[in-house]
């Protein structure tokens, strides 16, 4: 398990080593994988922008709440970024080996987190809790 993880992490920083195994898939599949990677990177970047914006624009909130929300968003961004690289490596390797693409729970986690955040904001707005 630990060897597998360290091997995958090494591939993050040296993806050319992927060429050592399997056969090169149709380049269009690799490009689709690359675009998926970039879409996740953009998700991470949007979370960073959200984190900075919360701290700047929600000045009516108490300092602790504002900073807490910003930290959650920034931590989510870091998670998304690492996951983007990791999933790209795993998909690329699976395609080279001719295996099924890896299944992932991460999108469900992110969607649940976003839905929870939205419900929380609705509750705060409806109950008029913010800044009063």
């Amino acid at each position: 398990m630990r060897d597998r993880i360290s091997e995958t992490v090494r591939l993050w920083f040296a993806p050319q080593r992927l060429r050592d195994e399997g056969t090169t898939p149709d380049y269009r599949f690799s490009l689709a994988n690359e675009r998926t990677f970039l879409a996740w990177i953009r998700t991470a970047l949007a979370l960073v922008a959200g984190g900075i914006a919360v701290d700047q624009f929600l000045t009516d909130l108490r300092w602790g709440v504002r900073t807490g929300v910003a930290i959650v968003l920034l931590a989510g961004a870091a998670l998304c970024a690492f996951r983007a690289v990791n999933h790209w490596v795993r998909c690329e390797r699976a395609m080279r080996r001719g295996e099924d693409l890896p299944a992932s729970r991460f999108p469900v986690l992110l969607a649940s987190g976003t839905a929870l955040a939205a419900l929380l904001v609705i509750a705060v707005v409806v109950l008029g809790l913010a800044g009063r």
């Binding site: 993050w12 920083f13 380049y27 990677f37 690492f82």
Partner: peptide
């Protein structure tokens, strides 16, 4: 085009 290299994966990260 070939797949991304370390500059792309590690650089973007």
């Amino acid at each position: 085009p070939g797949t991304m290299g370390a500059a792309q994966t590690a650089g973007t990260l």
